[in-house]
Design a protein around this nucleic acid. Structure first.
Lengths: 246, 246
DNA sequence: CCAAAAGTGTTTACTCTACACCCATGG
DNA sequence: CCATGGGTGTAGAGTAAACACTTTTGG
């Protein structure tokens, strides 16, 4: 029988993507701790990690990822996809990472394999939970990611690559937008993810051909230009569509 | 410092695909052991598993997969791709699987997460190694896979799905063919993998447009019909081509 | 009336699909 | 001379890409 003890050898890390109508963002966690090994100077260290944790022995990997997401953001039922597993025995290369493990783990030298997921969340819905395992979490623009702990930059790069690849063939972008959106918002999102401009008319043609969005008959309000029509995702059509052409 | 001890919590399983010019095959291992728990009848049990093993603490996951492949087939430098990690805490569902672990593992009840790879090998090159950890290994046609141990049928299904998906966008099929091949052999391979017929003229058009094969000027010999031209892969062009259109 | 983004169609190039006959060889 | 698979091109449909002007609103 498996207990809910933490398995010291397997962790799950989540690359949580969000979109603020300007750029693609990633949720990172500030790690604060004292390096009391450094000439007894008790130097405070602050750096950034991807949200993640060891897996419990009685949960699946998917459940573990969901748990991490819920603990951190309070959100459930969000898009989540396993994309790669990182298992280099030398994942812990930096001195401060080893130090930090020493303060956090019962077996700090154990080799940990991490199964990586990416998640797509609606930034609006996100209210940071101050009591979660993250003392502080913050959204970072995808083009402004500093050096992260462990191999987390590598994980993030691969997550972005996986997101871009998946988005080409499946209409998952709406997971990053509110329930009601305009066509320009969708286009700007795709541009933010791929990092290049798209043709407005062609984009709308393709999007409408997918037949998974419905106009609500509403209009944007309070904008100092022609107000855009508001659309929503047609969930049934979305489920049926096994492959889009984006 | 990590040793080369086996990590009891993480394994690597390999779905090894081969092609015999007739159908797509998978290399499976016969597991023989005695169920001495069954009314003391010492019933011999034979069933099938995917090749796999626990990971050593000082090797990467890729290295582990390579090691398994080499131990089993003697082959090196073969195409290998991680496609998914399976971590259901109830991966061991069948009674005989639990029994078998009891005979093989120091901690038979430990939860094991398995990182799955698929490999593409040239059947010609394969000479089974009788001394390897597999007492007996055998190629099974993809449409004739019996029930396997653990969750290995699920792993195999996902491997095939991953292979099909990857093959659509990358010209990896040649990994399954000998160095010299005819165009019809390539086509029959694709048909075997996707399980449907393809149009000869269109197939050849697409293949030649990829610009990664070169005719050798040779012809097939000893066939009782018009002999086919023999081609080979143009490695440089293959490396450069980051995405085919299959 | 100005600025800003919304909204809309057509032409052209390219790619994909369907399809049928002659050829070279061994037996 | 027969059976078998090898080898080739074209027409039509569908998809993707390029491109510019009018509309509506707030300030």
């Amino acid at each position: 029988m498996k207990t809910n003890a933490l398995n010291p050898h397997v962790s799950v890390d989540c690359v949580i993507f969000g979109y603020d109508f300007e750029e693609l963002k990633v949720l990172l966690i500030e790690r604060n701790y004292f390096d009391d090994n450094d000439n007894h100077q008790d130097k405070k260290i602050t750096d950034l990690v991807l949200p993640g944790n060891l897996v419990r022995d009685n949960e699946t990997l998917d459940e573990s990822a969901k748990r991490i997401l819920k603990e951190l953001t309070g959100l459930e039922n969000i898009f989540l996809e396993q994309f790669y597993t990182f298992g280099d025995p030398n994942r812990v290369r930096k001195k401060q990472d080893a130090e930090w493990l020493r303060t956090m783990r019962t077996d700090p030298d154990a080799r940990v394999i991490t199964v990586a997921y990416f998640a797509l969340v609606k930034l609006n819905d996100y209210i940071p939970k101050p009591d979660s395992f993250a003392r502080r979490s913050e959204w970072y623009g995808i083009d402004k990611i500093p050096t992260l702990a462990f191999d987390h930059n590598e994980i993030l790069d691969k997550a972005l690559e996986s997101l871009r690849f998946k988005l080409k063939y499946f209409p998952i972008g709406f997971e990053l937008l509110p329930k009601k959106f305009t066509l320009s918002q969708v286009q700007k999102l795709y541009e933010a993810i791929y990092g290049n401009k798209l043709d407005k008319r062609n984009f709308r043609k393709k999007l409408k051909a997918l037949d998974i969005i419905t106009p609500l008959g509403e209009k944007q309000k309070g904008v100092s230009h022609k107000p855009a029509s508001v659309y929503t995702l047609n969930l049934k059509a979305y489920q049926d569509s096994q492959s889009g052409s984006f």
